[in-house]
Write a protein that binds this DNA or RNA. Structure first.
Lengths: 216, 216, 216, 216
DNA sequence: GCCTAACCGAGACGGTACGTCCGGTCTTTTT
DNA sequence: AAAAAGACCGGACGTACCGTCTCGGTTAGGC
């Protein structure tokens, strides 16, 4: 966001105050349009019109279309995973399933559509691709990271497992299913991943054959 | 591609024949431009000009920019995985590593750039998203599917493993790393995935807890 | 027309002969299309298709669209004024009226439409503008020139009249009415011009006040 | 022009106002380009670029190339004949010659070139042909109509003359010379027409043989 | 009676203008 | 000064047309 006031600390005393309700209206409009026509199909005019806002009002808050979409999608995701209220059922499988069910099933459809719009952000080298994925999926990965670490501490799994890689398994495969295969990313699929990929990998990680640095 | 002749079977004998060298020239030009300026930066005029083709010649073959890019990327991928010449080293790990090394490391950089261009295709609901991912990644999944099945037949792993899900592990996580995290998708990363996720999951798949239908 | 053979004298004896019936078919098709959609609306493909000819067959005969249209319109006009069979009624008025009635009234509507198409030829500096007008209207001017000269020889009018200018009066005003005012150029209008402009001007030409060179 | 506001009467108060200086800039650019490369050679991009305007700004005002050219040429002509300041020298000949000289001789060359561009407008049935000629030549005809009427009132000529037809003599023949014959339409030619056609026709109109209505 | 070159219809080709649509900026009026 | 509305510049999109070239096939001669 481009809020000069946030930086200076000086509350820019002159003139009319920013109408902060516009932020939400614009982001909601952006999400609606994204879900309906996708990123490429969405235009800034569509968003402004639907939010009953002028384009200048939009551009006063976000410098470009990608940044707006980024914030819009992040806003949607923020509601989903709450890192301060992760489930704690005693077993990793229980925690992960609880995390999956935490979000009403009907929201998934909507978010799926919006996520589609997200894909093309990666095309902008500006680091927006990175940021965008991060904003949406990183909290999810972080939740997995915490749940898996907790399970290791409990002694459920060997401390030798690659937590970083395994935290990414479900989000990555979910993203692939949503964005590339365009199949629904529902609870059944989620549970199947847990049982056929993630848990087996954690259990089977006793004898990691070799090296495993992942970052470059 | 828009090739009516494919449907009728009747090869539409009248008039000048399509110059099939133009297809290749246009696709190559598209790949060059994609690698240089990305999907959003690429224009149809750039591609046509570089291929020394008229725009009509381009649009006679591909109905839109996304469809052209789709074919271009698919063409690039096709060279990568050859399903008829899969490696056979005796162990799954050996096969997978051989598959990874099969492609010269320096090509990866180029393909990574082009793959970035692919991302935004998913934004077009037209099923292009599906098709695009499919065209590029599906052959890779198929290769994994064959290698894993063969390993099971050899008795390396239990026949109870979910071959479908596990075939997608590496491509999905590779795509996430490339397109969202924007980190290099090199051999080290690839081998790490094999050793810390895929092989453990295959080994640990002895007691799949519950249901596991994946397709819808 | 581009008939190389006409120039070289060497009749290019080898190969298949031009099918001269195609010329007529193409010109007729061109006239039809011109009448229906005007010069700008007419395309070479339309003409070729309607004449059941290939574009190459058209371009083998005429080098460009303007040249084709020029010939097409000239062909139409040729039927109209026959310089070898000018009327001779004894009076200029009788001759002119006879010339007007010589062409069936119903053809006028068609030719009017086609003439509209002619207008834009003038936009091509290539001398086609000149040629086009010339091909269509010049024979008519020439007819007037001969009829007026004959009337002067008969003593109907003073030899001092400017035959060149007066020969152009009716064609010019007819063209203006057709092409610019888009009103019908029928016999009534024609006769009115004769009686209210041309004949008075011939009669009143006793005292030409001053200079009168017209060409530059 | 596409100015919705003209119809409603309600001046559509919201939003940024049309920048009326753009109209003039675009029309001037169009005239320059027309004079340089002619109607067919002129492109909308050329006009927009030269006027430092975007194409959307051009198309917001004129729906198509022909309509733009029409307005551009009309603008040029408007400067030429001022119906409120017609010359009054006491004789029709003096008035007509004054009208001719009223416009600097060097402008004629420029206008001639632009007029050439006008010709092909007639090819668009849309009434643009009619409108175009009208916009350019009708004011001239009207000037002649007024001058001739005034001369008749003064008793210079018989009230029986066909003012309508005679007012069109010089513009029609001038248009023919410019557009079809492509010869210069200069003062000498103009004066010659007055002396060898128009004035004789007015003088000789004593005994009109028949006459009959001209409009249909 | 066959060979060969030029013809024929059909349509792909390179190039280029058209008119539309967007992204991001700027202006006008109202709040 | 911020808001809604919308005009502004720049530039890509996809369509259509011109004039050329290529394809398979046909129609003449000349041998």
């Amino acid at each position: 966001m481009l809020d000069a006031e946030d930086i200076t600390g000086e509350p820019s005393r002159l003139g009319r105050k920013r109408d902060s309700t516009r932020d939400a209206a614009i982001l909601d409009a952006a999400l609606e349009v994204l879900a309906e026509v996708g990123y490429e199909g969405m235009t800034m005019d569509m968003v402004a019109t639907r939010a009953k806002a002028g384009k200048a009002t939009v551009y006063r808050r976000w410098a470009s279309k990608p940044e707006l979409v980024l914030d819009a999608v992040a806003r949607m995701k923020r509601a989903q995973v709450d890192l301060d209220q992760l489930p704690d059922t005693g077993s990793l499988r229980g925690d992960l399933v609880a995390l999956a069910k935490q979000e009403p099933e009907e929201d998934a459809e909507h978010r799926l559509k919006v996520m589609g719009g997200l894909a093309s952000l990666a095309a902008h080298d500006l680091g927006l691709g990175e940021a965008s994925g991060t904003a949406v999926i990183e909290p999810w990965i972080e939740a997995n990271r915490q749940l898996i670490s907790r399970a290791i501490e409990r002694g459920e799994f060997s401390p030798d497992v690659d937590v970083e890689a395994l935290s990414r398994v479900i989000p990555s495969m979910g993203a692939y299913r949503s964005l590339v295969e365009r199949k629904p990313f529902n609870g059944d699929f989620f549970v199947a991943l847990i049982d056929t990929v993630l848990l087996p990998a954690l259990r089977g990680a006793s004898v990691p054959t070799k090296e495993d640095d992942m970052d470059t």
